[in-house]
Amino acid sequence: MTKEKTDKKRTIVVPGEVIASGKEFLPGDGTRREGKDIIALKFGLLEKSDKLVKVIPLSGAYIPRTGNTVIGQVTDLTFNGWFIDVGAPHLGFLPVAECAGYINKKDLAEHYAIGDTLVCKVRATRTKSVELTMKDQTCKKLNGGFLMSVNPTRVPRVIGRAGSMVSTIKNETGCSIIVGQNGMIWIKGRDIQSEMLARDAITLIVEKPFIDGLTDQVKDFLNKRKNG
């Protein structure tokens, strides 16, 4: 703990570890109060900001939250909507009523067919399903490009502070990139080389969750690759 304060490096904590002791601390995400102590519930990086203590998980499946922008694939369709796999424990459901514009209910496949990739938003989470909506400016059907998936816990790193990381990659490679909160990333560029470059840059970010100042490293990496 003393080491953490001096060089500002974040420490790894494991479940059951006492991470703060005293009534003045507040337990945040991934922690719990047990008597006087605050213990970690998850395996991850410890973050203390003033009195709030939280654990940022290093791994784990995607748990949907209302308002998340996700990328998913249509797996099935019914008379009133589409089932969409968003990588959550349960399938997502997108009802016809949650799509903008007119839809011919007699032929839903005309609109979105099985295998289509969509950007959508989580409207609500139910016990056995995830309710999705397309009524947002960011939501659309994705044509062309390719999908890669990363661990959902790495998504904040890929996006960077206020989108700095992803916009660096976009500018350097000229690709359009959409990052879903569920860890699905869609990349489309002019040619396969630039797409591959963007993919490799994202892989680099995902493999290095502990380093500060990663944006500069990614810039170096992209420049090196572009110049030979």
Partner: peptide
């Protein structure tokens, strides 16, 4: 289980 990011009270 800990490595899978599953919340646990203790190991």
């Amino acid at each position: 289980l800990a490595n899978a990011g599953i919340p646990m009270k203790e190991l």
